[in-house]
Write a protein that binds this DNA or RNA. Sequence first.
DNA 1: GTCTATATGCGGATAGAC
DNA 2: GTCTATCCGCATATAGAC
Lengths: 210, 210
Amino acid sequence: MASPNTRDRILLSSLALFNAEGLAATSTHKIAAELGISPGNLHYHFKAKALIVDWLFRRFEQRLETLNASSASITAIDDLWLALHLRFEAINEYRFIYRDMAFLASEYPALGQRAQDLTAHNLVAAQALCEGLVATGVIETSAEQARILALQMVFTTTCWLSFERLVPGRNALAQADSGLAAFYTLTLISPYVSSESRAYLDYLRGKYLG
Amino acid sequence: MASPNTRDRILLSSLALFNAEGLAATSTHKIAAELGISPGNLHYHFKAKALIVDWLFRRFEQRLETLNASSASITAIDDLWLALHLRFEAINEYRFIYRDMAFLASEYPALGQRAQDLTAHNLVAAQALCEGLVATGVIETSAEQARILALQMVFTTTCWLSFERLVPGRNALAQADSGLAAFYTLTLISPYVSSESRAYLDYLRGKYLG
DNA sequence: GTCTATATGCGGATAGAC
DNA sequence: GTCTATCCGCATATAGAC
């Protein structure tokens, strides 16, 4: 068996560099240098840069699919807030994926396709989630409105961290705040929240706008 | 013009290739080949690829700043719809800028800074817009809610076209529909629209959901 | 203004010794 | 498993003839 240590260290170091400097700007030489190993050694563990990206992408997929699977059981605002929080943390850990998506899809078409598939799954999960919230009376909307809401939620979770870097005052160095991101996503459903569930939303509002 | 000068043709061809294949994947050789001129000739007109990107970015800035300047006079839903439509058309014409923003900012840091500045201006304009809509009674919200609304609108106009490519069924080849994008942005303010202004919104809803 | 030809450097990937 | 050394191709940018 190949040494599990070096292989895993390559993946961790690659992820850190991809997140910090971008997928395109991170060469295999840089990764090797960061680890203090030779480019040849890196190539022994991963015959191509694409394979490193592929592994990281797979881990990201699994994280999100796990979250998608558990999203069916969300029946209250605080469940939803926690779920959004966890999702933003996952996306933030692998933030290079959505941030550098255009480059990634262009350089590795197979991953571009899988990103579309993942988005499709996210949409299905979000729609089930919204329908569940309607069924349990947390929010009150038409079925059509619920579908648009689901789309907006997926859009926000997918793109928010990338957008944040464009907003002055939160530069790329600052750690993204998953809680704040989750709050912003919650504001999408805010207008439709029934009176019984408003308490928790107001609590969060005070916490993040104060 | 029947035969625009070579300099302009380079800019137009570069824009088309950047949009179609990505900023990173478009080499200066490709641009020259597309135009049927030599790489040397291209270099005569633009000493560096960065200068081509710079010019295109400047044109994009001007387009958006013009739209920002005129956004103060928006006092009705149909004005807003038109403004959003024009904005999405501009962003779509230069779609490589927001789509490849991470790469662009990493490769050309000066442009990354200007993108932040532009976003700041967009936010100011959107906030003025939302305040105006409140003042004229088109929407009814708290001042705090209006600020969040403005942020959501800038977020959506900035990132929507990039996100759209991730949604299965609308691949990169299909022309983006600025009208549909504008409608999705309008749904953000939909919950706050006062009864007098709802007619136009319902008209659009029928048009784009039907 | 436009061409051909070329310099330079980098990144991905490989070969073969240890 | 890890190293050193190297090949190859591509992309930016340049030099100099026409």
